[in-house]
Design a protein around this nucleic acid. Structure first.
Length: 595
RNA sequence: CGGGGAGUGGCGCAGUUGGUAGCGUGCCUGGUUUGGGACCAGGAGGCCGGGGGUUCAAGUCCCCCCUCCCCGACCA
């Protein structure tokens, strides 16, 4: 295939578009791969669409290779299945909803668990039909509050989503493993660096879940990696171990102290250290000796509100993302002044365990950070304005309703698995695999007969790759200062030939016949045959477009050579015209056998 | 939803104390150029985000609204 630049639908931009910040967005727009059509929705232009389809096909090939079968659902979906699963409500404002002329509710699919479940229920009813793996490559819609970074977070985007159906957990595990391995192959072929981290399943339900993250500063996900062992996790999913109980008998009895004007942890600690009756000899009080009690409201999908108190060490803050992930699908709201007014047991700024939890006056559920071990003593609020209590011992002086692990994760925190420490990084989520279990099969009543003729609820897995996001992530991972720099597997063309000679010499005919030869051996060629365009412009465009092999037919043609540049390595070689095709095939495409 | 920035030809920008819109680039025509974003000459292209107001006169002043970008909140 030969595409001529003189006729391709393309206009490169000399300046960066002002509304694009992240490099992949900037370059994809500048190089004429995409155009914004609406907030968070992009049009694919010819070059971009070629790259998109290459990415899509690599994913399709690997899915087919493991035996998954491709289907295709509509994007326009009925309300009922999502009503049944609860996600009509759980998804909230993020769901695009619409009505037909008879005012019947529809939605634009944000993801398709319900539909796949019902499809299988529709056709299959025996354990002999399982395992079954189905997938689609489909446009998804989510009414994101803030689309970002062009293709990185859109309101309309393309996702490959697959679903596995098994009779038991053992089957699910092997389906999961097969998909996980396929994903490893896919991202390797795409040339996309990734780390696999433990994740929260969030609104999807289910248990085991891992994310494939492309480490990148402009990423929106935060994850940790242990500097010692192979532990890695999304910060939302980090679980610190519980603290083992210690002997409480060494602690003195709890003692209430007047602590006026101590609205913050720091002022509280300073006051304790400055008062002779409260000082601790040889070991000044610090923020981590205090117990901070944070109250929030949970709003459940059914609209019900519930107050929740969380006790954490005073040197930490509650990480709202981690909290949201833990309490999903409930949403977290601030505990406003009017809520304090309605709970007289809670004294703002002086909340202590006494007013919380089991058998207390307030009846508010009280959960503790796992660092608050049984037998540990704390300085905390006395539930009276201007007063705190010291030596309040967990298990002796107060109890809680349980633990919740939602405090912020910090760089250098201890690894939950080994003696190492955690380092914090950012990344872009490019894939997600998880074991859904029976959540959807149960609510939508998908079951099959087993060997004994008994109904068994099917257990499911769900596996996603953002296809359009992957294009952006590859651009993000591979670009340089000059422009895009595609891996060969996804470049819109294999070879970019530039005619750089004067009019009337042999450069054009040389370039044309070289293009023909490359086409004959199966390579896709973009031929810059534009006349009246200076060489500098063509070189800049070639670098911007990022096709990995650039051939210059210019002044060297008189001596019988062309220049062959490797866009990825940045190298350039002069090769005899007669040898050029073989050279390109050999050096850039491994003599084409693998193509 | 909170904080910040910005809406003027395709893209990037200027526009003074209010006086009927300009520059660069891109595009068209002709000519000269041709290995690193060439040059000359002549052109086409704008509801100045939208609506209301003030004024003889509004891109510019006042009010309301919308949109986009960044940070946060939120988000399989």
């Amino acid at each position: 295939m030969i595409q001529r630049m003189s006729s391709v639908f393309l206009r490169t931009l000399r300046d960066n578009p002002v509304d694009a910040e992240v490099p992949s967005h900037r370059l994809l727009v500048r190089a004429g791969y995409i155009r914004r059509a609406a907030p968070g929705a992009y049009t694919w232009l010819p070059l971009g669409w070629r790259t998109f389809r290459k990415v899509e096909n690599i994913i399709r090939q690997e899915m087919n290779l493991i035996g998954a079968q491709e289907v295709h659902f509509p994007s326009l979906l009925p309300r009922e299945p999502y009503q049944t699963s609860g996600r009509w409500a759980d998804y909230g404002d993020n769901l695009f909803r619409l009505q037909d002329r008879r005012k019947v509710d529809y939605l634009l699919g944000p993801t398709h668990e319900e539909m796949f479940t019902l499809l299988v229920k529709d056709l299959y009813s025996s354990y002999k039909d399982l395992p079954l793996w189905l997938y689609q490559i489909q446009t998804k819609f989510r009414d994101e509050a803030r689309p970002r970074g062009g293709l990185l977070r859109g309101r309309e985007f393309v996702m490959k989503d697959s679903y596995s159906f098994d009779i038991d957990q053992e089957g699910l595990q092997s389906s999961y493993d097969a998909h996980r391995n396929a994903y490893i192959k896919i991202f390797d072929r795409l040339g996309l660096p990734y780390v696999i981290v433990s994740a929260m399943s969030g609104a999807m339900g289910g248990s085991v879940s891992e994310e494939f993250l492309f480490p990148c500063d402009s990423g929106e996900d935060t994850f940790v990696q242990c500097i010692n062992c192979d532990y890695s996790a999304n910060t939302e999913a980090v679980q610190i171990g519980s603290t083992s109980p210690v002997d409480a008998s060494k602690h003195q009895l709890a003692q209430v102290a007047d602590t006026p004007d101590t609205p913050t942890i720091q002022t509280l600690v300073d006051l304790f250290n400055s008062r002779s009756d409260l000082q601790r000899k040889g070991n000044p009080w610090a923020a981590h000796d205090t117990l901070k009690n944070v109250v929030v409201n949970l709003r459940h999908p059914d609209g019900r509100r519930e107050a929740l108190a969380i006790g954490i060490p005073g040197d930490r803050d509650v990480d709202m993302k981690r909290l949201e992930a833990q309490v999903a699908p409930a949403e977290v709201e601030a505990f406003a002044d009017e809520h304090f007014a309605a709970n007289s047991a809670l004294v703002k700024g002086y909340i202590g365990p006494g007013a919380l939890g089991l058998a207390s006056a307030s009846g508010i559920r009280f959960l503790l950070d796992p660092r608050i071990g049984i037998g540990s003593a704390w300085i905390t609020g006395a539930n009276q304005s201007g007063r705190h209590v010291m030596n309040l011992v967990h298990g002796r002086d107060f109890v809680a309703d349980g633990t919740i692990d939602v405090s912020e994760v910090r760089d250098g925190d201890p690894c939950p698995r080994c003696a190492g420490s955690l380092s914090i990084k950012r990344g872009i989520e490019i894939g997600h695999v998880f074991q859904l279990g029976k959540k959807y099969a149960e609510v939508l009543e998908l079951s099959v007969l087993d060997q004994n003729g008994k109904q068994q609820v099917v257990t499911m897995g769900s596996y996603g790759i953002g296809v359009s996001r992957a294009v952006a992530a590859i651009a993000e991972a591979t670009h340089d200062q000059l422009g895009l720099r595609w891996p060969r597997a996804v470049a819109p063309f294999d070879v970019h030939i530039v005619i750089a000679g004067k009019g009337g010499d042999d450069t054009a005919s040389t370039a044309n016949s070289l293009a023909q030869q490359l086409d004959t051996v199966g390579l896709e060629v973009l031929l810059d045959d534009r006349t009246g365009v200076s060489p500098g412009v063509k070189f800049k465009d070639a670098e911007l477009l990022g096709i990995p092999c650039i051939v210059i037919a210019g002044r060297g043609v008189l001596e019988g050579v062309v220049e062959i540049r490797d866009r990825i390595l940045g190298t350039a070689t002069e090769v005899k015209i007669a040898d050029a095709t073989a050279y390109i095939a050999e050096t850039h495409f491994g003599s084409l056998t693998g193509k």
